[in-house]
Amino acid sequence: MSSDPWETLRAATRARVGLGRAGDGLTTAENLRLAAAHAQARDAVHAPLDVDAVVGALGERAGPVVVSQVADRTEYLQRPDLGRRLASDHGLEAGTWDLALVVADGLSATAVHEHAAAMVDVLLPRLEGWAVAPVVVARQARVALGDEIAEALGARMVLVLIGERPGMSAPDSLGAYLTFDARPGRVDSERNCVSNIRPPDGLTYDAAAEVLVSLMTEAFRLQLTGVRLKDTGAALPSAAG
């Protein structure tokens, strides 16, 4: 049996617990692990989106590739407002769609590379009967860029799969942001979010898809998203006994 009383808890979580001490500070090993995690998070923020790889993974489901009004990654980090606005030459054409689906780099292209296509694979079969536009891939994008994309496509609702801000234990977390009647000027309180999609350490694709489909179905019934649309948790897995 281990003499470390924290070992059982550390085995059950990726949170940093019971790190130990060397004098008044952390041990050298823990300091090195923290530095490596910080470097991973920084790399995820600055890594460029591999558009060809994402489009290739999406296959025939892939639609147009668009970019925000951001010129480069430095401007993206300094001017969030420009990341919410489409470049004027976006080339999107209006149609009649129930849902616009957007895959966006956000603050972690790493998350998009690892999880976006697989999430689309699991989600789309659950949307049989829905008019879903070809998946738009967006570079230098913030969540609200989806509002302009939906308006340009003529979609009633938009779902943005986007790389979330990396944490020290999660550089590859994918978020899904849902907005009904999406258009420029929508605010965060008018959206619903399913966060931390990153199996095996976060939400699985199946669990995320069940929650999203439940929210989208209710969004159409109520004609809204945001704080008035509640996730009852019925689609979430039960806690282990």
Results as ranks from 00 to 15, higher is better:
residue 1 M to F: 08
residue 2 S to M: 04
residue 2 S to V: 05
residue 7 E to Q: 15
residue 8 T to I: 11
residue 8 T to C: 07
residue 9 L to H: 15
residue 10 R to Y: 12
residue 14 R to E: 15
residue 20 G to C: 10
residue 26 L to I: 13
residue 27 T to G: 14
residue 28 T to V: 14
residue 29 A to D: 15
residue 31 N to V: 11
residue 31 N to T: 10
residue 33 R to E: 12
residue 33 R to I: 04
residue 36 A to Q: 06
residue 37 A to K: 07
residue 37 A to C: 12
residue 42 R to F: 00
residue 42 R to E: 15
residue 46 H to S: 14
residue 47 A to I: 00
residue 48 P to T: 12
residue 49 L to R: 04
residue 57 A to F: 01
residue 60 E to T: 14
residue 62 A to E: 09
residue 62 A to C: 10
residue 63 G to Y: 02
residue 64 P to V: 05
residue 67 V to N: 07
residue 68 S to V: 02
residue 72 D to N: 14
residue 78 Q to I: 01
residue 79 R to P: 02
residue 79 R to Y: 03
residue 82 L to G: 03
residue 82 L to A: 13
residue 82 L to E: 03
residue 83 G to C: 11
residue 84 R to W: 07
residue 84 R to C: 06
residue 84 R to I: 02
residue 84 R to S: 06
residue 86 L to A: 03
residue 87 A to P: 00
residue 88 S to H: 12
residue 90 H to Y: 08
residue 95 G to R: 01
residue 98 D to N: 14
residue 98 D to F: 09
residue 101 L to A: 06
residue 104 A to E: 01
residue 104 A to W: 01
residue 105 D to G: 10
residue 106 G to M: 01
residue 107 L to H: 04
residue 109 A to Y: 06
residue 111 A to M: 06
residue 112 V to P: 00
residue 112 V to E: 01
residue 117 A to N: 08
residue 117 A to F: 04
residue 119 M to T: 13
residue 119 M to R: 06
residue 124 L to Q: 09
residue 126 R to L: 14
residue 126 R to H: 12
residue 130 W to G: 07
residue 130 W to N: 07
residue 130 W to E: 10
residue 131 A to P: 00
residue 133 A to Q: 05
residue 138 A to E: 00
residue 139 R to L: 08
residue 140 Q to R: 11
residue 141 A to L: 09
residue 142 R to C: 07
residue 144 A to K: 00
residue 147 D to S: 07
residue 150 A to Q: 02
residue 158 V to D: 06
residue 163 G to V: 05
residue 163 G to I: 03
residue 164 E to K: 04
residue 164 E to N: 10
residue 169 S to F: 08
residue 170 A to S: 15
residue 170 A to L: 10
residue 171 P to W: 01
residue 172 D to R: 13
residue 172 D to N: 09
residue 172 D to K: 13
residue 173 S to I: 05
residue 173 S to P: 09
residue 177 Y to T: 05
residue 183 R to N: 04
residue 185 G to K: 04
residue 186 R to T: 04
residue 189 S to W: 05
residue 191 R to Q: 13
residue 192 N to L: 07
residue 194 V to P: 01
residue 198 R to P: 02
residue 199 P to Q: 09
residue 203 L to Y: 03
residue 205 Y to N: 11
residue 206 D to F: 00
residue 207 A to E: 12
residue 208 A to H: 05
residue 209 A to W: 02
residue 213 V to S: 06
residue 215 L to A: 06
residue 215 L to E: 09
residue 218 E to T: 12
residue 218 E to F: 00
residue 219 A to H: 04
residue 221 R to H: 10
residue 223 Q to D: 13
residue 225 T to M: 04
residue 227 V to S: 14
residue 230 K to E: 12
residue 232 T to Q: 11
residue 233 G to I: 09
residue 234 A to M: 08
residue 236 L to I: 00
residue 239 A to G: 09
residue 239 A to C: 08
